[in-house]
């Protein structure tokens, strides 16, 4: 039980990861897929941020009297990753808009049907 509690951040990450992936795979709606993708990515952000924490460590701002800081690098990395994630989402949504314009639907199975009937 201790194992579960002491690793609670990982459980959250795994839970979110699975929710995200499942949504991407299972949902036919293109927007929902992107939402799933976002959740999936966010779970990875959590992973990075939580492994950057050092027990009892303070925020990595140099302050007098503090010896132990959390590792700032993962946080910085994840800032970059967030930007990448936002860009991906924006591009994905833009594509969905264009798909909606030319197909009139954003349901995956209907799109497939339309392409095959062509």
């Amino acid at each position: 039980m201790d194992f579960f509690i002491s690793h609670y951040n990982y459980w959250i990450v795994i839970f979110l990861m699975m929710v995200g992936l499942y949504t991407v795979i299972n949902r036919g709606n293109l927007i929902k897929k992107i939402i799933g993708l976002n959740i999936f990515q966010v779970s990875v952000f959590f992973l990075y941020i939580s492994i950057g924490t050092v027990k009892e460590g303070a925020a990595p701002i140099i302050t007098e009297g503090v010896k132990l800081y959390s590792n700032p690098l993962p946080h910085v990395l994840i800032l970059t990753a967030i930007v990448v994630g936002v860009a991906t989402t924006a591009l994905g949504l833009a594509l969905v808009v264009r798909i909606k314009e030319s197909y009139g639907t954003i349901e995956e199975d209907e799109i497939h049907e339309m392409d095959h009937s062509l």
Binding site: L21, V24, L30, K33, L37, F40, Q41, V44, L47, Y48, I51, P74, A81, V84, T88, L91, G92, L95, V96, R98, I99, S102, Y103, I111, D115
Partner: peptide
């Protein structure tokens, strides 16, 4: 063709999953 849009979308989903996997591994 409009299939270009769906292909790009499909690639985006797969590619992002791939990149995120890579990110997890690196982490």
């Amino acid at each position: 063709n409009r299939q270009a849009l769906t292909s790009a979308y499909q690639y985006l989903i797969m590619g992002t999953i791939g990149a995120t996997f890579f990110l997890i591994g690196v982490g």
